[in-house]
Design a protein around this nucleic acid. Structure first.
Lengths: 342, 342
DNA sequence: ATTAGCACTCGGCATCATTGAGTGCTAATT
DNA sequence: AATTAGCACTCAATGATGCCGAGTGCTAAT
């Protein structure tokens, strides 16, 4: 890639920043005004012209200013952006926003998503730590009534799920005991993703007792495990996207897309990098062609990892958002690890 | 109110139904075509003219067809709408949609909202049963590690909340015992809304023991109780609203409004009627002036009540939606009652 | 009370001219 | 060779104009 000279870099950076700020194509005079460059507008025009030829800028039409292309954003993010550190204000807002939820991993993640959405005016996506390495750590069965019991499941990364379960037969202490036997044998310590009705059936059959009465409990456990394993992705602040004028009518389509869980799962599955930035068509989905995704992984004691990130218009404030995402994921990882350590 | 003659009623009903179907103002000829009325268009025009004068219809401009006014919708819903019963198809969709969640109140309510949103293409709002009469039925403390415990809280109407709690001091069995004493004395059987740090402090002080080590547990219980008491309102399918053309740019404002919890709480606080229908400006909020709200209460064993409903454009398919909401709330009420009974 | 007939209204749409921000090019300057 | 001043040119945005036609309101006849 032909290297850009210093002034061209300066101009490219200024166009990106100005466009992010105003949303209007930026012209040569405006650019001089906002940078204080000591050259004439004609010089700037020549340089911009070359930047267009090189693919870093685009012009919507001949008599308009320039707009960054996706390649331009990419170059800006990779080479021109100044701040790599979060600033004081954003750091405080994040700290204050999630402090109330520090003790409980699940609430922490929810809250992190809300805070990030508020901060960035974008949609946020957040996923609890987990994946295949997430083990079932504890299962509790608490009798409520004769025919009702409450089931609580805890995983190795602090996710807690509970539900009521209604039994056909009375909940005797014998039944409880049998249940714990099965749980002990077939579930504890196993990955949540491996729990299914079939595998439990075999264990249930090997334990003598009323396996018929056990059925609703088994089913409920499986369902809890399943819902935990696929650890739903939380979407926050999606209505923020409506405020951005670049999504006109297509906002509806985007929101619909975001509400489907399968593609979003895919979006979050990042590569190996700690923070992933995908600009416009770098995303695999057509619905995201005008959006940028910034997701970062956080890891919890051991190798369970979760993900937190934002989705917003390509014209987003990278300089502010990237450090915020990075800081937030680090913080969440630390706090959850801390909450779980013995 | 001057009574309308038979033909005028027929015309009003036809205008409402046709407008709901097409979204376009309906003219006199079109109306004859779609009703099969045996009169001329001039007659229809005269009648429509009077309906405008009486305030049941409006014309966007002189040379356009007629559109129902809010008064018109109201008259239609109160007197002209045919079906009071849900039809077979919708009933099945609802039954099938929520069957998987029947055992667990919380999941049931979530699912009910999702199903309703899908069915109606509107946003759905749903609230778990509760209110001031919701009592705390059970609290469990499960030790996880030396410094971590899992707290589970169950209310009289089947809502289950849990969270992790990190302790400063080791979790001894003595501490557990003290905790249960306090819970027994100060919490169980009390309304969730009455639990607060102050009231617990006094009890904690009266029980001898290390009240300092107890502090994080107490705080967590209070927070659980609080979050249960205000029983958050679930909003579903809000992106459905973007598909309706009547909300142009104002969709953003509406969505923002729906995501605030305070006003929505107010919206759901219905009167005494079992089903509440508020059309357009019958709603107290300016943001809902072009929307209709249909909410119904369901009651669970005893007098705890929850609410489920939809929010959509005034031009919504009342004839289909109203019976669906009514049926769904009844069903949810029955299922939760059943899940909780001894 | 209903209907046929007809003039009238007014939003929607296409057309056209105007405007002005911003460019691209050329020739002069450093 | 790089920069700059000057100027003609381009094109979206804006607003005026005219036409079209769906639909009305009114009048006179049934």
């Amino acid at each position: 890639m032909a290297e850009l000279n210093e002034r061209k870099k300066q101009i490219l950076a200024a166009v990106v920043e100005q466009f992010i700020k105003t949303g209007e194509p930026v012209g040569s005079k405006e650019l001089i005004a906002c940078t204080g460059l000591k050259v004439s507008s004609a010089t700037v025009r020549n340089d911009m012209s070359e930047l267009v030829a090189l693919g870093y800028l685009e012009q919507p039409h001949t008599s308009a200013g320039r707009v960054p292309s996706q390649k331009g954003y990419r170059y800006y993010v990779d080479h021109l952006m100044k701040s790599r550190e979060i600033d004081e204000l954003n750091r405080r807002l994040i700290d204050a926003g999630i402090s109330s939820a520090a003790g409980d991993p699940e609430r922490l993640i929810t809250r992190a998503g809300e805070v990030l959405a508020d901060l960035t005016k974008c949609a946020s996506i957040s996923k609890a730590p987990g994946g295949d390495s997430m083990l079932i750590r504890k299962i509790e069965l608490v009798p409520i009534g004769i025919h009702t019991a409450m089931l609580v499941l805890l995983t190795s990364n602090g996710i807690l799920k509970s539900r009521l379960c209604r039994l056909d037969a009375p909940l005797t202490s014998k039944l409880c005991e049998e249940f714990y036997n099965i749980v002990q044998a077939a579930i504890l310590g196993k990955p949540a993703s491996e729990i299914n009705v079939a595998s439990m059936q075999t264990v249930a059959a090997s334990v003598d007792g009323d396996s018929f009465a056990m059925l609703p409990l088994m089913a409920a456990v499986c369902e809890l495990a399943r819902s935990t394993a696929q650890s739903r992705i939380l979407l926050g602040g999606s209505s923020n996207l409506l405020g951005h004028k670049e999504y006109g009518a297509s906002a509806a389509e985007l929101l619909e897309f975001l509400n489907k869980s399968e593609p979003i799962t895919e979006v979050m599955r990042g590569g190996t990098r700690p923070i992933e930035i995908r600009i416009g068509r770098e995303n695999l989905y057509r619905q995201l062609e005008n959006s940028s995704v910034i997701v970062a992984k956080y890891s919890v004691s051991g190798d369970d990892t979760g993900t937190i990130g934002v989705i917003g218009p390509t014209r987003m404030d990278y300089e502010r958002i990237i450090p915020s995402v990075r800081y937030l994921t680090d913080l969440v990882g630390r706090l959850i690890t801390q909450a779980l350590e013995e």
